[in-house]
Design a protein around this nucleic acid. Structure first.
Length: 569
DNA sequence: GCCGTTTTCGGCCCGACTGTTTTCAGTCG
């Protein structure tokens, strides 16, 4: 059982109890425990074996007992019991914007609604508005919410897909005779969400691999099976397709399986125009002879073009660029010199300043910026000016003792609903990095919201706009705003735009990031981490930048500290 | 539920926004 799966059970338990009207603090305790478990560095069952469960913060006697129960029996009785009482569809209803535990309960108890289809039907029959606590406006929100859920149906966040892929690959590779195995498809191209998981393996004997996947603990059912491939549905709600081929066909199959379809089709056309033939068996010359393919690079080389990394294979001009030798030298994770958006215990994170330094040093960073929340964000323990300045004094002291590493002072400052900033200029001018971002009034109109962020950009002390569109993948649409106009303003004011690397956000996205680069706007790729493990999410942000064709020079946190400070000044 | 140089009960992030709005409960971040 993986940490994340145990965490899911506790999250669902919290949701179920909340719908039942259980005590707020008890619910929060479960939710907090789930959060901690999901972000734990070590596997929970290892901590269990070493009798260290009670050492986990937020885990007391009761939760420790429930974790043991899950590890020993594979499930939690209380969770199962509640699921019998409250159908899972009610949980999906609770996820809709505007619907919380209370309204979900009312819908279930008063109208017997236990899934989205029934809810949609009831709204159309105008039965929902009559309920206490509902309105016709809310009915409209509900329909929009259902629409949003349906649109994303079957899409899974990249981080979940990658975690599952890693788990399955590790499992299959234990078998003798497995020579190669890799993830393919949109997961390998690092798309922000994926429809299903494609895996390719090379082995002489296919059968054992197919059988192994069918019996993998994450697998719920086998959807279909052929001689060399199997398609299964997992408990994680993601289907997995495994194709097993001979070692000779591995690279051509992986290459085709990686796609995208449009990219691959274009390559086939180019091959054809040269009298070659490209398919999953290999690349064949005009005489029908198979060309030696050791790695994907060989395919592109044979077609007389530059190698195109998976992230670029979207048919967005990369084939033409590769043919004319003009592909950009896109950014790599190793180019990243530091992280400019990090929270600590001074606001709402669990990391101490020392934890940040330690982790960043381990990552080989040259610098990091501490950017806690500003005073208006009360729920996150936002800092009043005196506490902020006290923190900055401590950071400056710490800096004196640090070698080859710079801890930068900063803040993630709220842009208030009226466009005002949360601190006056006298305070802002004293720190190294000023990030500005929106955390309230999400429902403002396009004009208002655009003007609001524009005003922040126009302040000379604001360096970076964080998670500018505010979307949360699968949960919240972006605010209504004119991104093109904002990019134009950022170019004029020299404001840096963030690619928020959190796999839940990836904001701004690859399309806007490319637009920003074209407009001459600099980018900063930041994790926005609230705990040490999430400082490791940088690769997701780098992937967005790669898919946006960004080069190191476009991204300020690839600069050395002197150049960075210059840009920030 | 968890937590505790306030050790076994009493705290535990808070405030804004919304509404066939009217005086507050529900939702959200």
């Amino acid at each position: 059982m993986q940490n994340i799966e145990i965490a899911w059970i506790f999250t669902e338990l919290a949701d179920l109890l909340e719908i039942k009207g259980e005590d707020f603090f008890k619910v929060r305790a479960y939710r907090r425990a789930a959060q901690v478990l999901a972000n734990l560095e070590q596997p929970v069952d290892e901590l269990y074996r070493r009798r260290l469960l009670s050492k986990i913060p937020g885990v007391g006697k009761a939760i420790e007992g429930k974790i043991k129960e899950i590890l020993e029996t594979g499930q939690m009785a209380k969770h199962q019991e509640l699921l019998k009482e409250i159908p899972p569809g009610v949980l999906a209803i609770k996820q809709l914007p505007g619907i919380g535990p209370n309204r979900a309960r009312v819908l279930f108890e008063e109208l017997g609604i236990s899934n989205l289809d029934q809810l949609e039907q009831a709204v159309k029959e105008r039965r929902v508005r009559a309920l206490k606590g509902f309105s016709s406006k809310l009915e409209w929100d509900i329909l929009n919410g259902i629409e949003m859920v349906r649109n994303r149906q079957g899409r899974t966040r990249l981080s979940v897909a990658l975690e599952l892929a890693e788990d399955i690959i590790k499992f299959i590779k234990l078998l003798p005779g497995v020579q190669e195995m890799s993830v393919a498809g949109s997961t390998r191209r690092w798309r922000e969400t994926v429809g299903d998981l494609d895996l390719v393996a090379a082995a002489a004997d296919t059968e054992p691999l197919l059988t192994a996947l069918a019996s993998h603990p994450r697998v719920k059912e086998v959807i279909e099976q052929q001689s060399n491939r199997i398609r299964v549905y997992t408990w994680w709600g993601l289907s997995v397709d495994l194709q097993v081929v001979s070692p000779e066909e591995y690279i051509p199959t992986l290459h085709r399986g990686t796609g995208s379809k449009a990219h691959y089709t274009k390559l086939q056309e180019i091959a054809q125009n040269r009298g070659f033939k490209l398919n999953h068996h290999g690349l064949f010359d005009p005489a029908g002879e198979s060309l030696p393919i050791q790695q994907e690079e060989d395919i592109y080389k044979a077609l007389q073009m530059e190698y195109i990394p998976p992230e670029l294979r979207e048919d967005r001009g990369e084939v033409e660029a590769a043919l004319s030798n003009s592909l950009p030298s896109i950014i790599q994770l190793e180019d990243i010199q530091g992280d400019l958006h990090i929270h600590t215990t001074w606001s709402d994170s669990v990391m101490e300043l020392e934890d940040v330094v330690k982790r960043c040093l381990e990552k080989g960073y040259a610098y990091a910026a501490i950017t806690d929340h500003s005073r208006s964000l009360k729920i996150a323990n936002g800092l009043e000016p005196d506490r902020l300045q006290q923190q900055h004094r401590i950071i400056r002291e710490m800096n004196k003792k640090l070698k080859d590493f710079t801890l930068l002072t900063g803040v993630e400052m709220d842009i208030l609903p009226n466009g005002d900033l949360d601190y006056p200029d006298e305070i802002l001018e004293q720190m190294d990095v000023v990030i500005a971002s929106v955390h309230s009034g999400f429902k403002q109109g396009r004009k208002e919201m655009t003007a609001r962020i524009t005003r922040a950009m126009e302040n000379e002390h604001v360096d970076i706009i964080a998670h500018m569109t505010g979307r949360i993948l699968g949960r919240r649409e972006s605010y209504d705003l004119d991104v093109e106009a904002l990019i134009e303003t950022a170019a004029k004011t020299g404001t840096i735009l963030e690619i928020n690397a959190s796999p839940d956000r990836l904001d701004i996205n690859e399309v806007y990031a490319r637009m920003a680069r074209d407009a001459g706007v600099k980018i900063s790729i930041n994790t926005d981490a609230h705990d040490a493990r999430r400082l490791d999410e940088m690769p997701y942000g780098v992937a967005v930048a790669r898919r946006a064709w960004l080069e190191p020079r476009d991204v300020v946190n690839t600069f050395d500290i002197e150049s960075l400070l210059e840009v920030l000044r």
